[in-house]
Structure formats: structure tokens, C-alpha cells
């Protein structure tokens, strides 16, 4: 359970680095999980909790030939399909600030699924196939 704000990111990455190898993750997988979860939790703290204190429950487990992670939290929903793909060929001077977080998550994970429920809470599930990367 992460309680607080962005200072929790180091704790999140340490948890993944300590836990993921037990599920058969190699160094590349650990890095991918750390970065994808960092980006996801950053978005939750910034855009759902509005930089206020909040709570995110993180679970990591192995499912067949993949490693999965869920992030559970309460707060507002958004439509992921409305988040524009960044133009990676655009010169930096023409790029908007930010906007790479969800792109990174989708690049690093085979599945990124959002479920929103005002009563039961929101859940972000990410899955990364092992042994293919």
C-alpha cells in the first residue's frame, strides 16, 4: 500500500525490484515494471488525487507466462482512448510537455486495462509476457 504522494515512487520501485525477480522476471522485465508502475502511479497522484495525499494498493503476481500488476485506488475516471498518442518524430520544441506516461506503459506492457467503479474503486491492470522480450 502506497500512502502519501510522489515521494512514494522510490518505495514503489524498490518493492518491484525486490519482488518481481521471485516471479521469474529478468532485469529487463523489472525495469519495464518499475517504469510502467512509476508512470501509472504518477498519473494517479497528479491527475486523480490532484497532488494531494492518497492511497494506491499495489499487487504483483505471476500468471502463466506473464507477470501482472494491479493498482487499486479511488477517484475520478478518465477515457484512456482519448489520450493522444505522442508524435515521437516531432521536434522537441513542438512537443507538448508531458504526455509520455501512458505511451510508456503501453510500450512496456502487453496489456494495460483500466476499470472504473465509483463504489468498488478503480483498478488498473497491466500484464507483461515473460521470455518474449
Amino acid at each position: 500500500m502506497l500512502r502519501g504522494s510522489l515521494e512514494q515512487l522510490a518505495r514503489l520501485r524498490a518493492f518491484i525490484a525486490a519482488t518481481a525477480p521471485q516471479f521469474g522476471c529478468g532485469a529487463e522485465d523489472v525495469f519495464a515494471l518499475e517504469l510502467a508502475c512509476d508512470e501509472a502511479v504518477t498519473n494517479i497522484f497528479n491527475h486523480v488525487f490532484d497532488d494531494q495525499m492518497g492511497e494506491v494498493q499495489v499487487e504483483l503476481w505471476r500468471q502463466d507466462d506473464a507477470v501482472c500488476v494491479t493498482l487499486d485506488y479511488y477517484g475520478r475516471s478518465f477515457d484512456p482512448s482519448q489520450v493522444a498518442e505522442p508524435d515521437l518524430t516531432a521536434p522537441l520544441e513542438q512537443r507538448p510537455e508531458g504526455g509520455l506516461g501512458l505511451y510508456f506503459m503501453r510500450q512496456l506492457m502487453q496489456e494495460v486495462r483500466f476499470e472504473f467503479d465509483a463504489v468498488k474503486g478503480n483498478r488498473l491492470t497491466m500484464r507483461r509476457a515473460l521470455g518474449e522480450n
Binding site: L35, T42, E93, E97, L100, G101, F104
Partner: peptide, 19 residues
Amino acid sequence: PYMSSAGLRALNVIYNSLR
């Protein structure tokens, strides 16, 4: 050892400032 997209955001701002 590590940089997330937030670090890239900072790089982008620095790049623009030095343009």
C-alpha cells in the same frame, strides 16, 4: 540509474530554454 517521463519533460523544457 533511472529516468521516467518526468525527467524527459525536464529535458524538453531545458532544450527549449537553450534553443
